[in-house]
Structure formats: C-alpha cells, structure tokens
Computed example of a mutant assay.
Amino acid sequence: MTAADNERVKYVANAFDRASTSSLTVGVFAPIAAAIYAPTSSVGNIWVLSIAGPCWLFTAGILHFVGRFILRRLL
C-alpha cells in the first residue's frame, strides 16, 4: 500500500468515527439535556426517548467499530 492509500483508509475510518460521535450527540446527549433543562410541559414522550436513545447508542457503537475495522487494513 502506498502512503496515499494509507491516508485514504485513515480518512474513511475517521469519517465513520465522526459519524458515530454525531449519532451519540444527537440521539443520546441532546435528548437527555432537553429533558433536564426544558420545562416539564415541553418534554417529549418519555417512551419515545427511552426507545430511541438505545437505538442511537447502538448505531453509534456500530459506526465506531466499522471505523476500527477499516483501520485494521493498515496492519
């Protein structure tokens, strides 16, 4: 593999890792912050949050591990 190929693999792996971080922020941390800091009357359905949060967390984990799997090509 050339140096350009190595950098391309790193770029793709980093893109997956950034997507996992964004998924974690949007799907888990933002709803928790909204539930804490929003008035009680404006908080969304708690059942939706309790199902969507773990789904976003699972998605973030999968994206992170895909990035790690891609980086293993460099070994």
Rank of each mutant, 00 (worst) to 15 (best):
F16G: 01
D17G: 04
D17E: 15
R18S: 11
R18F: 13
R18C: 09
A19F: 08
A19Y: 03
S20C: 01
S20Y: 01
T21I: 10
S22Q: 06
S22W: 06
S23A: 15
S23I: 02
L24Q: 11
T25M: 15
T25L: 15
V26L: 14
G27K: 04
G27T: 02
G27F: 09
V28I: 14
V28D: 03
V28T: 11
F29L: 15
F29E: 03
F29C: 05
A30D: 01
P31V: 14
P31E: 07
I32G: 00
A33D: 05
A33Q: 04
A33H: 03
A34Y: 04
A35W: 09
A35S: 14
A35T: 12
A35C: 06
I36R: 10
Y37A: 02
Y37H: 05
Y37K: 01
Y37G: 05
Y37Q: 01
A38L: 11
P39E: 09
T40E: 12
T40H: 08
S41I: 07
S41D: 11
S41K: 08
S41V: 09
S42Y: 08
S42W: 09
S42L: 09
V43E: 00
G44L: 05
G44A: 12
N45R: 14
N45K: 13
N45Y: 12
I46W: 03
I46N: 06
I46E: 02
W47K: 01
V48A: 11
V48C: 04
V48P: 00
L49E: 05
L49G: 15
S50P: 00
S50Y: 04
A52L: 06
A52G: 01
G53H: 02
G53L: 11
C55Q: 04
C55T: 03
W56S: 15
L57E: 07
T59D: 05
T59F: 12
L63G: 02
L63V: 03
L63D: 00
L63S: 05
L63P: 02
L63Q: 11
H64C: 04
F65L: 05
G67R: 10
G67S: 12
G67C: 02
F69P: 00
I70C: 09
L71Q: 10
R72A: 07
R72D: 03
R72K: 15
R73V: 02
